[in-house]
Structure formats: C-alpha cells, structure tokens
Design a protein around this nucleic acid. Sequence first.
DNA 1: CTAAATGCAAACGCTTTGCAATGTT
DNA 2: AACATTGCAAAGCGTTTGCATTTAG
Lengths: 154, 154
Amino acid sequence: MESRIDKIKQQLQSQGYKLTPQREATVRVLLENEEDHLSAEDVFMLVKDIAPEIGLATVYRTLELLSELHVVEKMNFGDGVARYDLRADNNKHHHHHLICLQCGTMSEILEDWLGPLEERIEQEYGFTVKDHRLDFQGICADCKAKNDQPKIEQ
Amino acid sequence: MESRIDKIKQQLQSQGYKLTPQREATVRVLLENEEDHLSAEDVFMLVKDIAPEIGLATVYRTLELLSELHVVEKMNFGDGVARYDLRADNNKHHHHHLICLQCGTMSEILEDWLGPLEERIEQEYGFTVKDHRLDFQGICADCKAKNDQPKIEQ
DNA sequence: CTAAATGCAAACGCTTTGCAATGTT
DNA sequence: AACATTGCAAAGCGTTTGCATTTAG
C-alpha cells in the first residue's frame, strides 16, 4: 500500500516535480478512495481533513498534474463535473461504466471488452486507438427491484 | 425534408408546447446541420441568421426542451461544452466517435457495435441498457500520414 | 538561494434563472 | 384574455489564473 504512494512519489520526482505535503495528501486521499470517482470538490474536502490549509486551486492543479502523468484519469459523465480516478498502476484504464438513470449509481465493468472493436477500427478506419471510454446509461438491478414493489410516492 | 420539420412540430404540439418562430428556426438549423455536433453557441449563431432577435437563453431552453423530447441528443466530449445532435427519427443514437488527440477531428462510426455487449450486461449485471456512449481517443489516419512526413516545425 | 508551488480571490466560460415584456392559441 | 415563451441581464457553477508569499530541493 505504502509502495503505491512511493511509486507515485518517484514518478513525480523523476519528472522534476516537487513533492509537497499538499500533493502527498492529495495522492493519499486518492489511494484511500480508489473505489470512488471523486470530483475535485470531493477530493478537496477529504484532503482538508489531512491538510486543512490546502486551497481548492491546489487540488485542481494537483489533479491536473497527476492527470498529465497518467497517475489519475480525468473523466466526465454528462454532468458538468470532472471526476478523477487513480489508474491501476500505469495501465490504460479500460473499464466501462454502468450509470443508473434512476438512482445515479455508477458501477464498473472491470474487464475490457473492446479489444476486438479496436482492432476493427484500426483496420477499417486507419485510426489508432490510444484510449477509449464506454459508458452505459440505463436502469440498475436495484432500481428494477424497487420498481417492482408498490410505489409509495410519486 | 420538410416532413422532418413537420414531424417535430407535431411532436412539440402533441406535448402541449407552442411552436414559436424561435423554436422553428432552431429546429431548422439543426436539420440543416445534421452532420455536425453543434454547441449551443454554434446553434445560436446560425439561428441568428434566420431569426436575428433570438436570445442565447432561448436557444438553450429550446435545446433542453428538444432534448427532453428526444428530438436531439445532448452530448459532451470532455471539453466543458455540450453539443447537440438531431436524432435520426426517434431511434436510439447508437453511433460511436473517433476523436483524434492530435488534430481534434471527430468522426463517427455509424453502426452500432454494442448490441452483444448490451445483452451481456443485462445478463451478467441485471442492468438494462437504455443508451450508451462509446468514444475512442487516438490518432486518425490523416495525422498518421502527416507524422510520416518530415517535420517542418517543432 | 532559486525556481516551483501555494493560497487567495478574482476572472473565466458555459449554462441557468428571475423577471418584465411579448406573443400564441 | 391567459398563459407559455421570450429577451435581457444577472447569477450560478465548476474550473482556471494572476499574483504576492511560501517552501522544497
């Protein structure tokens, strides 16, 4: 666990970036919330617990930096809010999202199902895929279960 | 062609919405630029040629309305700008995007390649897919060709 | 010591909203 | 006439930036 942090530290330093307490705190928060897709504001609030003096701008700058280093992945889902995800090591992300239109929950498909499609794109379009993004909108299993029960409201 | 407009008119009116000149002009612009992915600002400027008195807010409101009626589809691609696409009739959109990281060009794959994946999601996750979005980032054929030529600058 | 990084607050760009005026049915 | 719709300008939101100050290397 600590090795993850160290690795990211190294990655920062090897690129000539300074290792500030704010950056470390931000990375720590990202590691501790790897499951979630945190917005900058989310990260900010969590980081403030560790490093209360931090400013929101610094969080944005750090997330941007980590994004450039491919340590985190910056995503958006239709709502105008960027969300940040730690990348598993330095791999391409390659997971897909299931976003429930009813409750807003987002779950993930961790496998990458797009390999064959990417080959096809290379061949048919001469387009070399570097990354992709696949989101599905729909109704999750939980909501479908709830919908089958008699409704109380609205 | 005119029938497309009429159909949308009907759709508006059948839902109790009034058909104002501004709305008609907006729809007309969308029809005439079906190929493109226009931003609200884009639409605004094009509509002003037909209906110079229109306000940007009205364009936003109209696009939002059309979006609710599933006449257009509201999309975003990472940059904080919503783009709007007329839906072919009332079908799901089902096309995918190839976004070049080098020149920013976006082209489309018009087929839907995700049918089998959506079935799999239904079965493995109990999630009913209503819509999806698939974007590929990479290097387009044109840029690859350019990259093979000797570089002049930078 | 020096350049990079920070915090703050102001500016930003896109989008939404309040409201009085207007227009459709 | 009644109500939806409009235009305008102001506000809202997440994000970025300018700048003086601090801090890591």
